[in-house]
Design a protein around this nucleic acid. Structure first.
Lengths: 157, 157
DNA sequence: CATAGTTGCTTGAACGAGCAACTGCCTACT
DNA sequence: AGTAGGCAGTTGCTCGTTCAAGCAACTATG
C-alpha cells in the first residue's frame, strides 16, 4: 500500500468507475435495508439473527465466542455484547468450555431456536428481494467466488 | 415485507446460499479493509475521502448537505458530523445557502483539494487491489447495474 | 512444582454511524 | 396575514469498532 506501483495507478475506465460507484449500494445501503426490513417485520436485528443462525448450524448448537465472532464478521468485543443482549432475552446461554476453562460456549436455547424459526422467512424474503433478485442471469458460483475474494489482496505481495 | 408471499419463501439453492454467505465479505470486510488501507497510507478515512471527492466534482466545489449525504451513502446526521470533522481540519468550510436560508453548502477549500490530490492514488490502489481485481472477467457494466439495484425492491409493490 | 509468558474472554473509553426527536425556516392555503 | 404542514439540518441515544487493560486459566521452562 505504501508503494502503489505504476500499474496500480492506472485511472479507472468508465466501466470500472461505474462499478466502484455502484459498490456503495452493496456496502452501505444493502445491509441497512435488510436490517430495517427484519426489524420492521419480526423485531430481530440482522446481527442477532446472524448469531442465532450460526449457532443453530453448529454441532450441539454451541460455539466458542471467537469462532462465532468471525462467522458473524463481528469483533470479539462486539460479539460479547451481542451475546449479552441475546442472553437477557433468553435466546442464548453461556457455558464454560469443557476442554479449556478459559473459554466460553454460546449455546442456543430452545427459545432461541424458536425465535430463529419465526424469523427466517423474514430474512429469506429480505435477501431475495433486496439482493438475489438483482443478480438473476449471473453465474452465481463465479460471483460467490469473487465476493469471497473481495476485501483481501490474495496476490503476490 | 409483512406479507412474504409463497414465492419469496422458496429456500435458497446451494449457489444462492453460497452467494449470500459470500456477501458478508463485501458488506463487512471490504469497507473496513479499504478504510484501513487508506488510513494506514495517507491518514484520510474513506468517509472523509468520499466527501471531499464528491465536493471536488460539484460545480463551484460546493454541495448542499442533503445532496452530499446521499452521494456519500451517509445519513444526513452522519454527514453533519463528517463535515464538522473536515471543517476543523480546514479541508471544508460551510456557507449559508443563498436561495434557502435553511440550507448550508459544504465548500471544498484549497487545502481540502490538495489533501484530496494527495490521497487519491492511495484510494485508487486500494480499490483495485481489494475490489476490482477480483472481478476480472465479469461484464462490469452489467455488474454495476446489479449493484446499483441492490438494497432496493424495484419491483411491483 | 514454581514461575513466566500466552491466550480467551470481558470491560471501559473514545469514536464513527444510524435513527428519532427537535428547531427553525419556507410554502401554501384559507 | 396567519397558521399548518413540510423540509433542512442538528442533537441525543444506541450499537458497533478499535484499543488497552485486566483476569483467569493454560503451557512451557527452570
Amino acid at each position: 500500500m505504501s508503494d502503489p506501483s505504476a500499474e496500480a495507478l492506472q485511472p479507472l475506465t468508465p466501466d470500472e468507475e461505474a462499478l466502484v460507484r455502484a459498490l456503495g449500494h452493496v456496502m452501505y445501503v444493502l445491509p441497512r435495508t435488510i436490517d430495517a426490513d427484519m426489524v420492521n417485520d419480526r423485531q430481530l436485528p440482522l446481527t442477532e439473527y446472524t448469531a442465532l443462525m450460526n449457532l443453530s448450524e453448529a454441532p450441539g448448537r454451541r460455539m466458542r465466542m471467537n469462532e462465532l465472532a468471525s462467522a458473524c464478521h463481528l469483533s470479539l468485543s462486539g460479539m460479547t455484547r451481542t451475546i449479552i443482549r441475546l442472553e437477557t432475552q433468553g435466546l442464548v446461554k453461556r457455558e464454560r468450555c469443557e476442554e479449556d476453562a478459559r473459554g466460553w460456549n454460546a449455546v442456543l436455547t430452545d427459545a432461541g431456536f424458536a425465535r430463529l424459526e419465526e424469523s427466517w422467512p423474514s430474512h429469506l424474503a429480505a435477501v431475495r428481494r433486496r439482493f438475489l433478485q438483482h443478480f438473476e442471469g449471473f453465474d452465481l458460483a463465479q460471483l460467490a467466488r469473487a465476493f469471497r475474494g473481495a476485501g483481501t489482496a490474495e496476490t503476490t505481495d
